[in-house]
Design a protein around this nucleic acid. Structure first.
Lengths: 123, 123
DNA sequence: ACGTTATTTCAATAGATCTCGATATATGGA
DNA sequence: TCCATATATCGAGATCTATTGAAATAACGT
């Protein structure tokens, strides 16, 4: 589990992981990922290997390209692990956590990204 | 966000975070946390400072002890960030993620939610 | 004030990680 | 086969992280 969190705890890799989450089942080839992230191919290859070793992404070859896809089951395990037993007999405490899936992951219909709420006035 | 994930990507700190998630609103004093984890006080203090700077835990003084508590809002943001836009128009793909809160965080046998969930069709 | 307990901060070292040039491997086409 | 494309692996230097002894700070009791 630490390996999985470590894999995500790096700016380039976190960006790649989210890119692949959005890309869905189709995934993306290594070259496109590197180009989008603005990182040399060999550097990205190292990062992808780390994500892959952590089980967060899967790779398949398609002709000359290697297509990477996010592994939903693994990320589910990571999230579950973090909130495991958090309620300790007081489910109401965890109410904020329960809304994650419905509000963020699979927003009802038109809603997509959570809009940044204006907390303070811009100066 | 990388700072938050980095804070969790270390065995001692991940253990402490989960310990505090289970401890709930009462939290635990630094000394007890260090003793339970089997780590010297100053080492644990460093780890707690990292979790605190990342916003994952909060600290309050109570007499001579410093009581640490997990910050549920922050961990919710972390989880949301990871699964953001994961569905890309195909909510069924994310079905595994939707079950996290209900199955792991607040298991059904102790379930007692403040408001019902008249939401999507479950399978 | 003094001593005791609880925790933090400082400083130094050991170890791990990030990046990228050079090189190697794999695929497809002529 | 030879060449071009796509990606992976190696190696080394720079940077970051983890740990802990020693010293500092904070609160309480006497």
């Amino acid at each position: 589990m630490v390996e999985r969190l470590s894999a995500l705890a790096q700016p380039t890799r976190l960006g790649v992981f989210r890119m692949l989450m959005r890309a869905g089942l189709n995934g993306l080839p290594a070259g496109a990922i590197a180009a989008t992230a603005g990182v040399p191919g060999n550097t990205m290859s190292t990062h992808l290997a780390i994500l892959s070793r952590a089980g967060l992404v899967s790779a398949r070859r398609q002709s000359r390209s290697i297509i990477y896809t996010a592994n939903l089951d693994t990320i589910r395990d990571v999230l579950s692990f973090l909130v495991e037993d958090c309620c300790g007999g007081h489910p109401e405490i965890c109410a904020p956590l329960i809304k994650i899936a419905d509000n963020t992951c699979c927003p009802p219909q038109t809603k997509h990204k959570p809009q940044p709420k204006p907390k303070r006035r811009a100066t």
